[in-house]
Each structure stands twice: as C-alpha cells, then as structure tokens.
C-alpha cells in the first residue's frame, strides 16, 4: 500500500488529489459557515437573532443561500466582455483556493512545503486584485469600473506595508519557509515582540480583503455594490466564496506569522493535548471574529484617508520597524544564520 502511494506515479497523483481534497473540503465548509458566523455574530452585536429558521440555530442557512444562488438566472449585461466577465469570479475563487497549498496545519503538514512559501502567499494574494479589476472593467458599467479602480489602488498600496511587515518577520526567522516561520515562534509568538507590526498587518489584511472599514470597492452607499454590481447567480456566488476564502486565508497568514501557527500558547500539558491543526483553527476563528467585530463597529473610511493611512502611516512605520528589527537583531547577535532553521 505505502509502496503504491509513494513510489508510483499514479499513486502519487492520487495522494496529491486526496491531500488537495483534504484541504479544500473543510475550507469550503468553513466558508459556508463563515457567512453564517458573520450574520450570527453581527446580529448578536446588534441585539438581533440573525438567521434562525433553517435548521437548528439556522445552521442550514448557508446551504439555503447556496441553493438560491445556483437557481438564479445568470445575467450578462449588454456590452460586457463575456469571456472576461465570466473569467473574473472564477479567477478570484481559484486563487483563494490555490493559496492554501502551502499553509502548514501542523509540523510539516502542508500540501506543498516549499522553501519560498511566504513569497508564494504574497504572490497569490497580490493576484487577487486581478479578479476585481477585470470584473470591474468587463462589466461595462461605471459603478463596477470605479469599484475596480478603487480596489486596485487600495490593494497595491497596502501590499507595500504587508510586504515590509513580512520582511521584519523574516529577519527574525531567517527563512521563507512557512514551517520554519512557525517553528521560530516556539518560545514566543511574534505578536508580542512585534506588536505594532501585528496591528499593521491586521489592518492591512482588512484592506487587502476589501473588508469593512475598507470596503470602498464595494461601497454599497455610493457604488451600489462596486465591482460586482452586475453579477448574479453562480458568478456572484464564486466572488462571494472567493472573498470569504480570502478572509480565512488572511486569518491563516496572521496566525502563522504572528500567532504561532499550530503551536499551543504554552508548551505545557493541558495545551499540548489539543492537536496542532485545532490550534490553528482556533486562531483563525479568533482572527475572523475580530474581522467581523470590526465590521460591526467601524464606519467606512473616506478614500483619501485610506490612502493616507497606507502610504503616510503604515509605510514609514513598517520601514522604520524593519530597520529597527534588523539593527536590534544585529546588535544582540540574535540574527539567524544564512540558510534558515533547517
């Protein structure tokens, strides 16, 4: 059996597919329940009940929504660029799925444990903008187009500070491998010594996923629904899934970079009983809860304030922090050696 899976091509392919499914299925279920969680949590914060009709506590609401979405008619606006119009949601969705290939859920437990994992994540998340930009342009509608443009400028701006924050973390780790990044936090999670960067990264993640208070690309009150105003049915559904999968992905990145990934908070008995993947899920859930909490709390940013925050506050802050980190590590001799942990 092991011979078949590890040493034949067919076996390896089957193994690969199984691994992929093992990531994708929980992820899709997670996305479905994230939408429910968002509605429930926000409802609780606003002293409402939220969905409670379909199934116990409304647990089947997500599936009801999905069925409704699939049954709807797909409308393609006149003058829209058909191919690109349909390609955009597909792109957003598949990118959000692709990124999960490198996320380690335990020591060495990733579909692909590659050396440049963090760069892979950065690359995939920077591609997310294309789905939105293409959707905005292909819809042949000015609201959608404005939404797309806003989103492009916003995501490019915040990527800069995300990149710099990641560099600060990498300085302390000495490797681009996500597994090494988690293992480097055995003694202390990076969110403590790098607390300001944790905050910067968190806020940038909000902007990167177009979440409130940075949801200007959607901007219901001014752009109707921004870049996906013309979408309906399954195409809309794919966007929806992609956005929420991206939220989970960003929460995963935050957990891995700053909250110690699958590691328990303390290496003591009651904590180590819980398996690593569960810890990672707890941390992701915590981040998601904060995402929702922020959405329920803050009003939307004005566009110039958004840009100001990105370029004039986060960029200098993360730059200075990066240099300070490098200086500190050099001075204390804690700088990791070339080649990383392994």
């Amino acid at each position: 059996m092991a011979q078949f899976f590890y040493h034949t091509l067919a076996g390896q392919i089957i193994l690969m597919l199984l691994e992929t499914l093992a990531v994708l299925v929980p992820l899709l279920i997670g996305v479905a329940y994230l939408t429910l969680m968002e509605r429930k949590v926000m409802a609780a914060m606003q002293r409402r009940r939220g969905p409670n009709v379909n199934g116990p506590f409304g647990l089947l609401q997500a599936f009801a929504d999905a069925i409704k979405m699939i049954m709807k008619e797909t409308v393609i606006p006149a003058g829209a660029n058909r191919a690109l119009f349909l390609f955009a949601p597909f792109l957003t969705f598949s990118l959000a799925m692709l990124a999960w290939a490198v996320i380690p859920t335990g020591n060495g437990l990733a579909v692909a444990d590659i050396n440049v994992g963090i760069l892979y994540l950065l690359a995939i998340s920077s591609l997310g903008v294309y789905g939105i930009l293409i959707a905005g342009w292909a819809s042949n509608s000015k609201y959608a187009f404005l939404g797309g443009l806003r989103s492009a400028a916003q995501m490019v701006s915040y990527e800069v500070s995300i990149g710099l924050v990641i560099v600060s973390v990498l300085l302390a780790v000495g490797s681009l491998n996500l597994n090494d990044i988690v293992l480097a936090q055995r003694h202390v999670w990076f969110c403590l010594p790098m607390f300001p960067m944790f905050i910067v990264f968190f806020i940038s993640a909000l902007a990167e996923t177009n979440r409130a208070p940075f949801d200007l690309p959607e901007g219901e009150s001014e752009l109707v629904a921004g870049f996906f105003v013309e979408y309906s049915s399954l195409a809309f559904g794919l966007f929806f899934l992609g956005e929420y999968a991206n939220m989970i992905l960003m929460s995963g990145m935050i957990s891995i970079l700053f909250l110690g990934g699958w590691l328990p908070p303390l290496g003591l008995a009651p904590f180590t009983w819980i398996p690593g993947p569960l810890w990672l899920i707890f941390k992701i859930l915590f981040c998601l809860f904060v995402f929702i909490w922020i959405r329920a709390t803050f009003p939307r940013f004005r566009y110039d304030q958004l840009m100001r925050l990105g370029w004039k506050v986060f960029l200098p802050l993360s730059l200075v922090w990066m240099i300070a980190t490098a200086g500190f590590l050099m001075a204390t001799g804690l700088l990791p050696q070339v080649g990383g942990v392994n």
Partner: peptide
C-alpha cells in the same frame, strides 16, 4: 523558485496592475 515568486509579486502583482489600471482608463 525565488526569482519565480519575485517575478509574480513584482511584475504581475504590482507593475502589470498599474499597466492595466492605466490602459483601462
């Protein structure tokens, strides 16, 4: 692999976005 990722991050993720941005406008 490093160059590959850099190509995607820098050229696809940033440069081409601005290209597209301008061309669309």
């Amino acid at each position: 692999e490093f160059l590959a990722m850099l190509l995607v991050i820098v050229y696809v993720g940033a440069v081409a976005v601005l290209f597209l941005f301008v061309v669309m406008m």
